[in-house]
Each structure stands twice: as structure tokens, then as C-alpha cells.
Design a protein around this nucleic acid. Structure first.
Lengths: 188, 188, 188, 188
DNA sequence: AATGAATGAGCGTTCATTCAT
DNA sequence: TATGAATGAACGCTCATTCAT
């Protein structure tokens, strides 16, 4: 076995499995098997199933968010930035349809364990990215609008999960992106 | 205990417990105990834990949604209706902070069981309520705007879950309601 | 399965197995199997392996000690009582050669769990039986002599465990009983 | 760390840990860590956990017993020897309150492995020390009295473990030593 | 000699579900 | 109808032991 990336292989397998089905239906054996390590080996790197889930969530989240941030910030005008933000966020939602549920599961368990601080600061970090763009766009309340934009994305992810491909019968994805741009900028 | 409403007592207890903590941390014994029935009695009314969870979710959902609908529809002007919709929706979110997670959990299990139909039709039902109001308000794409409004609510619930009372430090709930009204109607 | 005595069957099986081999070598499956119940059934009666071991220890201890007490107290003269005490105590030791180890194991775990009170009061109870006899025999320090007699019995159990049948080559059990009587009473 | 005495450091750490808590609650990792060696290093010196426990038991036992023997034998009169024997034995008991349990655990495992010879001969060795002193004291059955004295010590250790410092409320240690001297010599 | 990553059998415990009463 | 004792498959996790480096 390739020694070096055992931990990363485990994180990747865990992110995939926890994204695919609920926490309580993913077994540690399964993650270990998919990562190509023994169960004992997995516990060599992660002290519990919960820690594994949490780390794998952040692993997946950071990979995506880093990519989105850099793409968005490479744009020049604020309008282009906002359009790119909508574009890549929607792409993330479509590619990770069950991300919300996974996120919420891990989050809930971290509440019980009273490990909340990091979550809020991590949330605020993303909101700052949004707020900066709204500020450049010259909207009145960039802070609140950033919150609402974030909530809309979360909600879309939530709804997409619900309607899945079935939803495409009712709504055109390009229409949705356009409407979001319009509502939040007042422009079309 | 009044025999008649044993089933309703079970549904109520289940809704409360599944709202409080994750599906896999709620035991059937616990629900039975909180409802004041025996375990055998519970299985007399519900064939499995999953069915219990699903029915209790709809039980809770319908109680709230029925109430919100009737309050909203009793208003006269579309502006008042929309303001009431925002008002009571936010109230629901604040009172049921963990509803999203519960909803998603049951939803996910129903995917596995391929029992999807009812969910979409149930979603569309709510969207029709929203769409009607946007139509009365005279917006251009009432259908899509309804979808986005629904998503925003879901997302707010999601975010409120995340930030909880801590979030109140950063955002004022009245500001948020006002901003929602403005964004979706273009008026202030 | 006979419903009524499931718990007693489990206690009996547990006492036998924990007497036979160390705590960590007795598995819960094994106890359940020997008692003729399922593992789940066992946990219906005992919340943990430790509680099972503790209850089964007391179960075995009380059965023996009750019998010894009643036999001893039915004797008339103090000399006869003391001889009977020696007789039946030695019999217990010979029939339960690994009792000390089992006792000590459970005791140690109860230290960790800070459940000590009952043990001391239970010890003092037996010492009072001994003290009463020494008092009748007219020895000078009946309290301390009772302690030492108790310790001697415990130690004999300990040593018998060590030497087992092998020890019989070196020591005659009747000689030992006689010597104990002599040392503790000053008579022969 | 001095390489030379790695083995001794392991034995010392093992004796301390196995004395502190039950066999099954001491892990090999823990012993290695406390001894300042790697797990692999430990297994270089000891083929298994059981062998480690057994060797560490004898290591601790011999250190104490050698010391007691030499102190006792340096006394002149048999009375002084016996008093010293009581003195240092009681000291050992007070300083190693959980020794009995550790001893019994290892002993039990050696029964299963059918490695009994050394234990009996080791026991008999100590009994010979006692027997010699009783012979010098001129008692009638020095052999049996030695056995009973050994058993009394073991039993006291056993009881001290049970009553611990709590026992001091009920019994004075100096009274006990005096009573032992009296019972076994007939003198005061 | 020394390390510690990796293994995997085995454990205690849980809990949805069944069923005799 | 209603009960709760009983089941048993499945789970997360541990840890003595091995072995490539």
C-alpha cells in the first residue's frame, strides 16, 4: 500500500460515502474498504467515526471553496465576479446534491459535543467573500445581502436535493441563475 | 391516558424527539416512553421506525403549514400577504431550528426506498402558494421567483441552525425581514 | 425457555464462568450461551458486563455465606461453633479455589467506579460473626482476633489457589484445621 | 535514555502499571510509553504481554523479598527476627496494596499455560524462611505454622486491599502486629 | 536494534423488530 | 389491544502482534 497518502485516501472515501448516504448508514468498515486500508488502520488516523466525518466534510468543503474563491477573485469587474460566483456555486450544488444533509448531520453532532466556534467563524469567512462583492457592486446593505445570498444558495442546494432531476422539468437552471443576478443586483 | 389519541401522542413525541436530535440517536423505546405507550403498542400503529419518522415529519409540517397558509390568505392586499408570509415563515424557522436536518434525513431515506412522488407534489403545493402571491404582486417571473423565495427560506432555516442565537450578534432579524421584502418585491 | 428464572440462570452461569477463568477471558456471549439466553436477553437484565460480574459475585457469595452462618450458629458451645466455622470455611475454599481472584477482580473495578461503601460494610458483617464467637470463647481482643482470623481464611484461599492439589503433598488439611483452632483459642 | 537498561525500565513500568490496574486495562502501548521505548522495542525484549507481566511480577517480587530476607536474617535473636519479619511484611502490604490481584492474575494465566512448577517452588522458598524462624522459636509444628503465617500475610494483604485507608478507622496497625506476634509465638 | 504504521480478530453494547402472553 | 421479554445482526472501537523500513 502506498504509505504516504493513506490518510488522504481515507478522507476521500469518507467524503464520498457520507455524501452518498446518511451518517448512520455508512459503516467504518465500508470507508476502510473503499480507502483500501484495514479498519485498524483507519482508527490509526482518526480517533472516532465522528472525527472522521468532520474532517472529511472539511476536506471536501475546502477543496471546493478554495477553487470557487480563486476563480471568482480572478474576475475583473464586480458584475463578472458575481456572475462567476453564481455560476460555480450552482455547479457545486449540482455536483454535490447531498452535501446539505451531510453538512447538517456533522454539524448537529458537533453541537452535542459543544464544538461550535470553528463553524461560525468558517461561515463568516464565506460571507465576507460575498459581502466584498456586494460592496463593489454598490448595494445598500452589503452585509445583510451577503447573508441572504448565502442562505439562498444553501436553500437552492436544499431544494435541488429535494427535486433532483425531476425539478428540471419545472425549472430551467439558466433562468434561475439569471433571476438570482437580477434580484440581488437590481440589474438584468 | 386517553386511549383514543395514542397514535397522535406517538406522532407528537416522535416529532419532538426527531427534531431534537439525529435519527440514529432517537430510539423507538424513547419515543414510546415519551408518548406513554409500550414499545409493542407503538409498533401496532407504525410498521417501522422509518414510517414513524416520516409520518411524524408530515404531522409536524402540516400543522405548521396549515396555520401559516390560513393566516397569510386571510390578509387582503398582496403586500400584506407577502409580509405575513415572511413573518410567519421566520417564526417557524426560529421555533424549529433543527427542522431542516430532520426533513433531510427522512427525505434521504425515502430516496433509498424510492418513495419520491409525494415529496415533489408536496413541495409544488407550497410553491403554488408563493407563486400566487408573486402573481398578485405583479412580478415578472412569479414561478421562478417563488422557487427562489422558497429556497431562501430553506436556506435561512439552514443558516439559522448554524449560527443559532450566536447569529443574532451579527444580524438583526427585523433587518433581514425588511431586506427580503425589498429584494423580492423591488419595493421598500 | 423458562421465563421466570432467566435472570437466575444468567447469574449462575456467570458465577461459574468468572470463577473458572479471568474476567477478560470470559465473554458475554459465552455467559449468554451457557445460560441459554441470547446476548440481547442478557443485556435486558444486566446493563453491562461489570454489573453482571458484580451481581453474580454477590449471588455466589451470599449463597455460601448464608449457609455457613446458619450451620455455625446452630452449634451450642463456642468451641463447637469455632470448629464448625473452620470446617465449613475450609470446605468453601476447597470448593471455590479461584474465588479470591474473581473477588479481587470485581473489587478492583468497583474501586475505579467509586462504589466502595457496600464492600466494607459487607466485610464488617462477616467480621462481626467471628468477633461474637471469639467473645464467647473469652479471648482478650476479640475484634482484632476476628480480623486476623478473617485474613487467615482469605490467605488460605489465596495459598490453596496457588498450591492446589499439589499442596496436599506437603500439608494435611486436617493438621491445618487443628493448628488454626489451637493458635486462635490457645487450646488444643 | 540509557540504552543499557531499556529492559529494566520496561519491567519497572510494567510492574507499576499492572500493580495499579487490572491486566486487561493495561495496554502494551501504555507500558512502552511509560518506559520510554517504542512498542516494537518492547516486543524485542518480551515475546508477549503475558510474558511481560510475568517477568515484571517476579522482578517486583524479588526486589522486595530479597530486601525483607536480608533485613530479617541480619537480626540476632529469633524473637527479633520474627518481629522484623512482621514489620517489613506489613510495610510491603501497605506499600503494594494491589499486589495480590496482580499476582493472582498472572498466576491464573500461568495455570492455563501449564507453567506451574516455578510458582510452587518459589512459594516453598519463602515458607522455608518462615519455618526456620519458627523452628528457632521452638514452636511445635514449625512447618504448618509457617504455612499459616504465610497465609495470614496474604490474607492481610487481601483485606487491606479491601478496606484500604478506610480500615484504619477500625483497626490500629500496631495492635495488629502485636496480636500476630502473640498468636504465633504464644508470648507477648 | 528500533520504529510505528498496519493488521484483523474479537469485544461489549445497541436497538429495531418479533411474538408469546 | 397491549405488553415487554427476547432475539440477533450489526456496529464502533480496541489492542496484541507483525513487519517493512
Amino acid at each position: 500500500m502506498k504509505r504516504r497518502n493513506a490518510k488522504e485516501r481515507i478522507l476521500k472515501a469518507a467524503f464520498e460515502l457520507f455524501s452518498e448516504k446518511p451518517y448512520d448508514e455508512v459503516t467504518v468498515d465500508e470507508v476502510a474498504k473503499q480507502a483500501g486500508v484495514s479498519k485498524g488502520g483507519l482508527f490509526h488516523y482518526f480517533p472516532s467515526k465522528y472525527e472522521l466525518a468532520k474532517e472529511s466534510l472539511f476536506y471536501g468543503l475546502e477543496r471546493w471553496m478554495g477553487e470557487i474563491s480563486s476563480k471568482v477573485l480572478s474576475m475583473k469587474s464586480p458584475e463578472e465576479k458575481f456572475r462567476a460566483l453564481i455560476e460555480y456555486s450552482v455547479e457545486f450544488i449540482l455536483k454535490n446534491p447531498k452535501f446539505s444533509r451531510f453538512f447538517l448531520e456533522v454539524y448537529e453532532k458537533s453541537i452535542e459535543k459543544k464544538e461550535l466556534e470553528q463553524w461560525i467563524s468558517s461561515s463568516l469567512e464565506y460571507l465576507q467573500l460575498f459581502e466584498g462583492i456586494f460592496r463593489e457592486l454598490g448595494v445598500l446593505n452589503p452585509k445583510i445581502r451577503a447573508l441572504l445570498f448565502g442562505a439562498l444558495l444553501d436553500g437552492l442546494a436544499f431544494d435541488y436535493l429535494l427535486m433532483g432531476d425531476e425539478g428540471k422539468k419545472y425549472f430551467d437552471i439558466e433562468d434561475i441563475k439569471r433571476e438570482i443576478f437580477e434580484i440581488f443586483t437590481g440589474k438584468s
